[in-house]
Design a protein around this nucleic acid. Structure first.
Lengths: 254, 254
DNA sequence: TCGAATTTGTGCGTATGTATC
DNA sequence: GGATACATACGCACAAATTCG
């Protein structure tokens, strides 16, 4: 009784999967069968399989069964690269994938930045109720698989107000990306910074991304800099079960 | 009945937290109280709170209660930077933190690389049972908080065998890091590549890291390159609830 | 110091809804 | 349509940790 039963059962199931006794795609015995096999209640077996579902080793389909996941295929989201590797390399492929057919929806509005965003933008104290940021909410979808990335960006109105780029997705520079848009008003974006972590999805996020409640998402907090000035921050949410973030760079000082 | 009860309850609790009705550090009503309040069974309430536990909004202490988590403090693990920002900036702090007092344990052995590692190292087919990689398993601990990072690295023996750096943590170049060690045998490491995702921790990982079973970890698959040759790959595991990965770089072509 | 009350974690058994085959 | 399987929900019981008088 050192470990809870459901942990023991999960461990044994994981072992059976990794040694190949349960092949990818294979269906697990039904709950009541596993319960009999492990001499445990069905609820306990369920907790065990839930653990493995969250680990990404299993997938379940109501009415059909619980299956060993096929080699998890993750979309590679290339966040940085410092040189082109030769054709045919993984990088080429990933870049190509990333640029593949897809679409996005967005909506922009001005608002007063919440405290946490103020801090990231270096905004200082709010001025009454005055709106001081442009917020844009994006949903990115691939044509074949539906939504796969959510993003919310904030840009200080102190920089963009009255310029042609105030609305990120309107005007002559719509959809051109932060770097190009700010270049159009003479602001040279020269650096980025991303902080990555992960947590369970909120209900909203899970619904928008079409994943189960409580499944895992990665959060990328991005900032773009022009010198020491932060010109944009964004929160990017992707499902961890289907996405990898790819970073690469050179070794050594510069 | 559009959404399951436990999702509705979780949503309402999240709302009560975000609007400040439940302050950080505050204790939630006990299970049976929430059950009465929401007209649901205790098990359902438990599922709701588990959702929020995994989201990181709540923490529970057996016997004591369930509490709204204080502002989550995450250790910043700086994985890349391309220039020093001025003193006092977050980067300086993070770099300092990262270099702070800590310790690690390791063990090395030779083995035949498993298929997945072969692929990442570009090794080709195995030669009988012959050992072809040096595997080193690390546990990193901070002096005050115990283990916080696990790492397993693989280096091809075809490169290091018979050299002073064959054992990463022994010999004249012990503990110097991949770049310096390989430089010592004339191999110039010039690039790195990291792929990041997240999943639930395995039982082993959870135990080693001192976190709950099924809590979320981030996985970093790292590769070091010398030209087109992969000289080292590593899997790095950190608990998502207490760690951020930090990347940054320059904007534009080079 | 000790014991009683409280609270979470775990486990059991059952019932019902709904999707799949 | 019927059988099967998972998802959800209910209610109960007990162990272990904590709290507090």
């Amino acid at each position: 009784m050192d470990q809870p039963s459901y942990v023991r059962i999960a461990t044994d199931l994981r072992r059976r999967i990794t040694v190949g006794e349960l092949q990818p795609g294979a269906r697990l015995p039904a709950r009541h069968e596993l319960a009999a096999e492990y001499q445990a209640a069905e609820g306990v077996v369920r907790e065990a399989t839930q653990l493995l579902l969250r680990e990404g080793l299993l997938v379940s389909r109501p009415g059909a069964g619980t299956f060993v996941r096929q080699r998890p295929q993750r979309r590679s989201l290339v966040r940085s690269w410092f040189r082109e590797r030769q054709a045919g390399s993984p990088f080429r492929q990933q870049m190509a994938e990333q640029g593949r057919r897809g679409s996005w929806e967005y909506s922009s509005d001005t608002m007063q930045a919440p405290a946490e965003v103020r801090e990231r933008l270096g905004l200082g104290e709010p001025d009454g109720d005055r709106h001081d940021v442009m917020r844009t909410v994006y949903t990115f979808s691939s044509d074949d698989e539906g939504p796969w990335m959510l993003s919310t960006s904030w840009e200080p109105l102190s920089i963009t107000k009255g310029t042609p780029i105030a609305f990120p997705e309107a005007g002559p520079h719509a959809g051109q990306g932060v770097t190009h848009r700010f270049a159009a008003i003479g602001v040279q974006v020269d650096a980025w910074d991303e902080e990555v972590w992960a947590r369970a999805a909120t209900v909203d996020e899970a619904k928008q991304l079409g994943v189960g409640a409580g499944s895992i998402v990665m959060v990328v907090e991005r900032a773009y800099f022009a010198g020491e000035q932060v010109v944009e921050v964004a929160d990017i949410i992707v499902p961890a079960e289907s996405t990898k973030l790819v970073y690469n760079g050179p070794v050594g000082e510069r």
